[in-house]
């Protein structure tokens, strides 16, 4: 099981011999082309401007001005005023479910490495530090914006003990930005993944707290919440509501999956 083997199915990846590979000290770990092809990447041109969902599979009558009906519903809620928008990398499908279960619930942290390149690319695009973003900045004669601060969604202590790792922290650590553990988890609530949609969207019990030591550092900054999956958007909005106390410039989010 070297880097030449797929992270998930462990078969040979059949990497082509290129000059870049020849000169690199080692290959980055990754998925084989067969496993990779089963993921459903989201087309950035066709995403919902609110939640980052892929609008290609959506009936046009559920969309308005590039927003999906769920986001339009959220807009009517008071919880939405603190939260900007989300971007996601993949749509949730059966294959992603399988890989994600292995990653999050069986605890195979290393699978996150397989998403590294794409994850970093979507981050660069979302903060405008990709080559294309820079070029556009140059043409419009704009200053490059300061990169946002990264805030991984925390998990309860009990769950951390159970799993041994926090998937959002792992994902945040793969990006270049500064990671700030300003969000704290109070513990004792049921998993979001064991609740129903309306239960999830109910915003009364907020498990998050703002770490007062970091509040000053957040004020006036752009914040980017990092999470593994956007399902209804309730978690991210709860976190954004907590962060609003520190008066940041804006709160957006980046997730690996939209599902």
């Amino acid at each position: 099981m070297s880097e030449n083997n797929c992270l998930y199915c462990r078969k040979d990846r059949h990497l082509a011999l290129t000059f870049a590979r020849l000169l690199a000290p080692s290959d980055p770990p990754g998925f084989c082309s067969e496993c990779q092809s089963k993921f459903a990447p989201i087309d950035p041109e066709m995403r919902c401007l609110g939640c980052g969902r892929d609008r290609r599979g959506l009936d046009p009558e559920f969309c308005r001005d590039g927003y999906c009906s769920d986001c339009l519903l959220w807009r009517q809620s008071p919880a939405d005023k603190y939260f900007g928008h989300n971007e996601a990398l993949f749509s949730y499908n059966d294959w992603m479910k399988e890989v994600f279960t292995a990653f999050k619930f069986h605890g195979d942290e290393r699978l996150a490495e397989g998403f590294r390149a794409e994850w970093r690319a979507v981050y660069a695009r979302s903060i405008g530090s990709s080559w294309r973003g820079r070029w556009e900045n140059f043409l419009n004669n704009k200053q490059r914006a300061e990169p946002p601060l990264l805030l991984p969604i925390p998990v309860s202590t009990q769950r951390l003990e159970e799993r041994g790792f926090n998937q959002s922290e792992l994902l945040a650590a793969m990006l270049d930005g500064e990671v700030i553990p300003a969000l704290l988890h109070d513990g004792q609530n049921r998993k979001q993944s064991k609740k129903r949609k309306l239960e999830r969207m109910n915003m009364t019990d907020n498990p998050f707290r703002l770490n007062p030591n970091y509040a000053a550092r957040l004020s006036g900054k752009r914040l980017l919440i990092i999470d593994d999956i956007y399902t209804t958007g309730a978690t991210l909005r709860k976190a954004a509501a907590v962060l609003a106390a520190a008066e940041p410039e804006c709160v957006d989010s980046l997730t690996l999956i939209h599902g």
Partner: peptide
């Protein structure tokens, strides 16, 4: 595989992951 968490220095076995927990 080495755990990537900050301040954690543990190693886990990828071979028997799905044989009842990591």
């Amino acid at each position: 595989a080495r755990c990537r968490m900050k301040g954690c220095d543990c190693v886990y076995c990828r071979h028997c992951l799905n044989m009842g927990g990591v």
